[in-house]
Design a protein around this nucleic acid. Sequence first.
DNA 1: GATAATTTTTGCAGGCTCTGCATTTTTGCG
DNA 2: CGCAAAAATGCAGAGCCTGCAAAAATTATC
Lengths: 227, 227
Amino acid sequence: MTEGVTARGGLRERKKKATRAALVEAAVRLAAEHGVEHVTVDAISAAAGVSTRTFFNYFDSRDEVFVMIGADSGERVRRAVLAAPRALSPLEALREALAAELEEIERQRDLWHLHAEVLRAAPQLLARSIGAHMADELGLAEALAERIGEGSPLFTPDRPAFSTAEDQRRRQEIGLYPRLLAAVGTTAVRVAVEHWCVRQGEVGFADVFRETFAHVASGLADPAARS
Amino acid sequence: MTEGVTARGGLRERKKKATRAALVEAAVRLAAEHGVEHVTVDAISAAAGVSTRTFFNYFDSRDEVFVMIGADSGERVRRAVLAAPRALSPLEALREALAAELEEIERQRDLWHLHAEVLRAAPQLLARSIGAHMADELGLAEALAERIGEGSPLFTPDRPAFSTAEDQRRRQEIGLYPRLLAAVGTTAVRVAVEHWCVRQGEVGFADVFRETFAHVASGLADPAARS
DNA sequence: GATAATTTTTGCAGGCTCTGCATTTTTGCG
DNA sequence: CGCAAAAATGCAGAGCCTGCAAAAATTATC
């Protein structure tokens, strides 16, 4: 296997991370070559050197292996939102937190580009990817609510992502504004990424990102109607 | 079968609509009773009085039957956007178009409430539902682009929703602003609906909807910082 | 009204996804 | 080394989904 430079945690933990990464990489590589639909769990598992059954010990479904990139993005963004200078408005704080995270992702350019290509050719998976992000959305809304000072500090940085029954209760505690902020923020990121993917090469991502948030901050005023 | 009062189209066409509706209703009813996960395609088909194989002639996947409500919403919204008075800003035009469609949906209250309950208990399906709406998003962006006057009039009201290869090309024709507008608009609707579901009974949906779009129009300014 | 053409339904075979359970292998530790 | 915990594996089985060809239903035509 690949040699883990980071010796954090026991060998057991490192091996699990390695296996997971191997599965993701094998899956994305195979998908880029043969098309997502023609990649079976058997093939992914074989390429990663584990049994088919083991695959399902790591991922709940076949599709999940294609969308599980940046699994810990959510937590970093939440922390950044809470740590942002209080001089920033909520929207600005969110913008900066997301911008920082996107720079982080840019650093793993290659794998991410391959991933983006795979997802772009598979709208069905893109949908599920959005769904995965939606788990983050609720946590992000909580972080924003706490930053704004609304409600009690029920935020705990690392928390299981999905828990239907629990979510229900948590949703009730959060106001409309923080939730809208979180939702629109992630939506803006998605649109920026999509738009940038389409115009790849023409413009830098940072520019697209800034422009997108400028539109949002202006209340989506008609850019054609300059007065 | 149920007697179609509307005699439009041949018997064949009416029967297909009836079968589809029967499948949806059976699915939702069974899901509300036993939980989505425990409803098999066999059970749905049996309850609707058709074979299992026939189910898959109507829906591409088991999940689709749970999210296929308001399938023609997208087209109506697009038409409304194009028909809106030119005095309205793009965001206002979109808001009014969506508001009208939501009123329309409210009219089929019962089935929709059951549906909402089923989806709320199944985040995985909610994700797919969002995905289904995303197909509309692109078409909505086109309609908005045309209304704004940007680019050529490539909008044709009724068009197949999904066509991966084709989408690619269409995306390139649309600017960032219309796409962002479409995405944020549908996101705002989603947040409004979710928030309203959680606070059911406390407030009317129309109020939540107005408040949500007011936030968006204000550029998501901090409502706590009144100056 | 009977027959032909078209569409829809259906059964069936088969592959893939995913789960539970028992077993084997690996790892952590004294 | 030997023992306990954790992970990987094999296997059986349910369920999802897709071609394909035969059967049934609807529409068109005479």
